[in-house]
C-alpha cells in the first residue's frame, strides 16, 4: 500500500462519557487548581451547569470515558488505527516517532454529563527531508460531536517519524 491509500481511512470511533471524576483528576494532574473543574458551585458561577473540560481533555478521552456497552461499530473493521500500522512499518528500519503538532478547535463548550461521539480519520501523509533524514508526517483528524450531532471539538494530531 502506498501512503496515498491511507488518506481518508478511518482511525476509530468512540462514544465518550464526560464524567466529573476523570475531569477533576485530569485537571489536577495538569497542576490546574481552578475550582471550576472540581466544585459544582464554582462551575455554576463560571456559567456552566456542571464542570467544563480542561482544553486538552478530549485527547485522552478514549481512555477516560469509553465503555463497552454503547460503543459504535469499529470503522476500521478490527484493523485498528492505520496511523499505528504506518508508524510500525517505518520503525522497522529504526528511527523515532515524535508528536509534532497538536491542534484543538472548540466549537461549543463541553461539560460533565455530556456524551461525545468521536470519529477519526487520516487526513494527510507527507514526507520532508531535514538534515539528510526523511521525516514522515501523518495527520489524523478527530471530530467529537454531541448527542444532537453538532461538532463540539475537532482535534488535529500530527505524528512524525524521523528516519535514522
Amino acid at each position: 500500500m502506498s501512503f496515498d491509500d491511507f488518506i481518508g481511512k478511518p482511525t476509530g470511533a468512540n462514544t465518550i462519557h464526560v464524567e466529573r471524576g476523570s475531569v477533576s483528576r485530569f485537571a489536577d494532574a495538569l497542576t490546574d487548581s481552578n475550582p471550576v473543574y472540581s466544585d459544582l458551585n464554582a462551575a455554576k458561577e463560571a456559567g456552566f451547569d456542571a464542570p467544563p473540560l480542561p482544553p486538552t481533555w478530549t485527547f485522552a478521552s478514549a481512555f477516560l470515558g469509553a465503555y463497552a456497552e454503547d460503543q459504535p461499530e469499529d470503522p476500521t473493521g478490527g484493523e485498528g488505527n492505520p496511523m499505528m500500522k504506518i508508524m510500525r512499518g517505518l520503525m522497522k528500519d529504526g528511527g523515532m516517532v515524535l508528536h509534532g503538532e497538536q491542534e484543538f478547535q472548540y466549537h461549543q463548550p463541553v461539560q460533565c454529563g455530556d456524551v461525545l461521539h468521536g470519529e477519526g480519520k487520516i487526513t494527510d501523509i507527507y514526507t520532508k527531508e531535514s538534515k539528510g533524514k526523511v521525516m514522515t508526517f501523518v495527520v489524523m483528524e478527530t471530530v467529537f460531536k454531541n448527542d444532537a450531532g453538532e461538532p463540539v471539538v475537532t482535534e488535529i494530531f500530527n505524528l512524525i517519524h524521523r528516519g535514522k
Partner: peptide, 28 residues
Amino acid sequence: GMFSMGLLGRAITDWAGAGNLKNYTVRF
C-alpha cells in the same frame, strides 16, 4: 508533550476563563 500543552492550557484558561477557547494549536 501533552502535559506541557495542558500546563500552558491552564495558563490560557486562567487568563480567558474556562470554556472560552476557540482554538489552541502548538508545535512541540
